[in-house]
Simulated assay, not measured.
Amino acid sequence: MWTKLVPVTALIASASLTSGTAYAAPTTPVGGDALGSHGLVAPEGVKKPPKNEATSFVIADVDTGDVLAAKDAHGRYLPASTLKTLTAVTLIPKLDKNRKVRPSDNACNQEGTAVGLSPKTTYKVDDLFRALLMSSGNDAAMALAETNGGVARTMSDMNAEAKRLQAYDTVAKTPSGLDKPGQSSSAYDLALIARAGLANPAFRGYISTKTANFPAPKGHYEISNHNKLLWRYKGMIGIKNGWTSKALGSFVGAATRDGHTIVVSIMRHEGYFWDEVAKLLDWGFSVRGKVTPVGKLVDPLPDPQAIPRASAPASHVTPAAQPPLLDTAGRKQSDSTKLIGAAVIGGGLLFGLIWLGYGIRRRRRGGSRV
């Protein structure tokens, strides 16, 4: 027995970002009204997508953003480790990949899947992202969050990034995806986040790596990618799978064939989903460009911090640029004293000009003096 976290259309009214900017969230399904359906939404004139056991799924064309088919696209469920895609999309631009990190005991002792971090070993941020996306290391997720300034700051950053991407079904409570009350995502959001990640070369590099050497207290050991389709599906790029006893199976993955990329996301699958995902990818490739899409993966909203501000006119002087003494005196003046001050300053200026003219005439008559 399980309960969906919230209704599809119960979207928040607004979301405050770390920059202080609020993005107004829509009250209709993101990507198109048809995506608000709980049932299967598929194009007409072609064979329906292969049957699968996922409660929710999305098949989309990464290049165009066209959603080719979906089922309960905006249904909000526990994401498990697929949430690590948001962790990576958020933190890759923020952290120097060559920065060296000595993980805390807290990071090394995270429950669930781990890459095996040791507090006695120094890692590069690059190593930690590899562990996060290849080996689904919950310890790596915590180490990255702590490197970013702590869990609270990282959750704020991740949720801000989700809203910027218009992934309004997503609420991050942990950097790893470990179950926590209130945490959620949707098949639509997972596809949206994946599309943003695929635009980042570093993200693509991590998710497509099959095996890699990983630092250890003495030497190194080999880690491998948990995405089984990397090893056996033609054109597979990778991305992320996840599982917990409450979330059940979840997955988001993308593949490229003939210069086109298809992404598939599934949520709440009770069993072995790899073969079903492969068939959904096959179907996506077979219909892309031939059918009317049922929806759209929307583009990210503009980042307010990236919008240049208009420069002030050259004659503008801010209060901070004024002499402190005159500024303080000016604030204490009444209207009458300001008028008197203006008269005094004006009179002094006139007197100065007369005196200057007199001096010039004297120099012309008597010559310069040393």
Rank of each mutant, 00 (worst) to 15 (best):
L40Y: 10
G182N: 06
G45V: 07
G284I: 11
A131I: 13
G238E: 02
A254L: 07
G284D: 04
I354C: 11
I354V: 15
K180R: 11
P103I: 01
K47I: 11
T3Y: 13
G366I: 06
E53P: 01
A310V: 12
L35M: 13
S208L: 03
L356M: 09
T209E: 15
K51F: 05
P217E: 03
L198Y: 00
S136A: 12
L190E: 14
P304H: 10
P300G: 05
G295P: 08
G177C: 06
I237E: 10
G242P: 10
L229Q: 08
G259I: 04
M236E: 09
M158G: 07
T27A: 15
G289H: 08
T9K: 15
W355V: 14
V264K: 08
K48C: 00
D33E: 15
V344M: 12
L133W: 10
P7N: 13
Q166Y: 01
S81K: 04
S184I: 05
L349Q: 06
A25P: 01
L178T: 09
V344K: 11
K120P: 01
I59D: 03
E146Q: 12
D33N: 13
G352P: 00
I223E: 02
R361L: 13
A194H: 01
K94F: 01
Y233M: 07
A13G: 14
T170L: 06
T244I: 00
Y233L: 11
R365P: 01
T85P: 04
Y23H: 08
V294G: 09
N159I: 02
T55K: 12
R331I: 03
T121F: 05
A73K: 10
V344C: 02
F251V: 01
L40R: 05
K332V: 10
R153I: 09
V151L: 15
G182E: 07
G137P: 01
V125W: 01
E270K: 12
A107K: 07
S368T: 03
H74I: 00
V6L: 11
R362I: 12
L301I: 00
I59C: 04
L301T: 00
N159R: 01
R369A: 14
K240A: 05
I262E: 08
T147C: 06
A202L: 11
K228A: 06
M236I: 09
V317S: 10
A342L: 15
H269D: 04
K47M: 08
P324L: 13
L11Q: 08
G357A: 09
N227Q: 06
V101G: 03
N148P: 06
V67S: 05
N138F: 02
K180L: 12
L230F: 02
A187C: 06
D126M: 02
D169G: 02
G197C: 07
C108G: 08
A254T: 10
R364A: 09
Y123D: 07
P293W: 05
K173N: 11
G20R: 02
K338S: 11
S81L: 05
T328R: 14
A320M: 02
P319L: 12
W243V: 05
L128F: 00
P49L: 07
V30C: 03
K332M: 13
